[in-house]
């Protein structure tokens, strides 16, 4: 305790406070006192020093006892009256918050238009247009796919950038870097030791089953991504499946073994996410300058139902899937070890 206080008294903040209180004089005084204290031992004789030590010890004991008394009183208070008060306040707050939320929700429900009426705002001409002319205009049999990657492609552009920004933020907060000389820091070494110790990457059962399942999962994810414009699915769901496959592989075989393959490295993550997002932005970024209007890309639509149809939807699905898969994987690795 005393040590903490000493540190505090010489800290920048305390000196700043003292300076605020008493101008530069206080700072000078404290500096002089510090100098005196440094010079003290040589000035006093041994007996005086002993007496000083004793006095300080006594003072520390007194401090300690006072602190303990305060803590005991606090403890008692929390056990008896405080506990009852806190429980009461807690329950009261819970009830009040619940009632408030119920009131807000019910009042907003009562303001909703009646369900299923033909003149509701949800039943406007936009939905009818999507259903009637969706296949003709976008070439996508899956109307949802045509909607999110053609009519509303700028919306999906924002969504994939949200994923990218989230990955960047997690990396800024959690990534353990090398130090200036290119050697790993102590935190990084600790994290790697922890990883080796606690993660089950030498589990034979998991390894065998994952080597059976991971290829199937990757294949299924690729199928979902590539059929985004033909059947239910698309970039987000297929990317999630592929990300799960990557995570399962790393979980089973450990990062040291998986890290030797380029697919699981940081470089691939960097290039794939950046490349996919740059492609998407180049392809659909014009929406922001055109007021979300369509610009003809001069790519033939093809026959609806073929894999190679629906102009840009297939490549955009692939870009979104890659971003989602590698973002999920990078989250997992960063939260587990702090580095690739």
């Amino acid at each position: 305790m005393a040590k903490l206080r000493d540190n505090y008294e010489t800290s920048l903040w305390a000196r700043f406070l003292r300076w605020m209180k008493s101008g530069s004089k206080g700072l000078e005084r404290s500096m002089i006192r510090a100098l005196e204290e440094e010079a003290e031992p040589s000035q006093h004789s041994e007996a005086e020093q002993l007496a000083l030590e004793k006095a300080r010890e006594e003072r520390e004991m007194q401090d300690h006892e006072r602190e303990r008394a305060i803590q005991e009183r606090l403890h008692l208070w929390s056990k008896t009256r405080g506990a009852r008060l806190m429980t009461f306040a807690y329950r009261l707050a819970a009830v009040v918050i619940c009632l408030a939320v119920i009131f807000v929700l019910l009042s907003s429900v009562s303001m909703l238009p009646e369900f299923g009426r033909s003149d509701n705002p949800a039943n406007n001409e936009v939905a009818a247009r999507y259903i009637e002319k969706g296949i003709e205009e976008t070439g996508a049999v899956n109307i949802v796919g045509g909607m999110i990657l053609n009519y509303r492609a700028f919306d999906t552009l924002g969504e994939s950038h949200v994923l990218f920004v989230a990955a960047c933020a997690v990396m800024m907060l959690l990534r353990l870097r090398l130090d200036k000389d290119g050697r790993p820091t102590r935190e990084k070494l600790d994290a790697e030791a922890d990883d080796r110790k606690y993660e089950p990457h030498n589990d034979v059962i998991l390894q065998k089953v994952s080597s059976l399942i991971v290829p199937c999962l990757l294949l299924f994810g690729i199928y979902v991504v590539f059929n985004g414009h033909l059947s239910a699915g698309g970039g987000f769901s297929g990317g999630a499946i592929m990300g799960a496959a990557l995570i399962l592989y790393v979980n089973a075989h450990g990062l040291t073994r998986a890290g030797r393959q380029p697919l699981f490295g940081f470089k691939v993550f960097k290039y794939i996410t950046f490349g996919a997002l740059a492609f998407y932005s180049l392809a659909k970024g014009y929406s922001f300058f055109m007021g979300a209007n369509h610009l003809d890309s001069h790519i033939p639509l093809g026959t609806p139902g073929n894999i190679l149809s629906a102009e840009l939807i297939l490549p955009l699905n692939i870009a979104v899937g890659a971003v989602v898969a590698w973002t999920m994987y990078s989250f997992y690795v960063l939260f587990r070890k702090g580095d690739f």
């Binding site: 089950p200 589990d203 059962i205 998991l206 059976l212 399942i213």
Partner: peptide, 17 residues
Amino acid sequence: IMLWLTSPVSSHLIGRL
């Protein structure tokens, strides 16, 4: 097949942990 492959493995991992 998928559930019979995955669910015992996850149980095994939880038990091991």
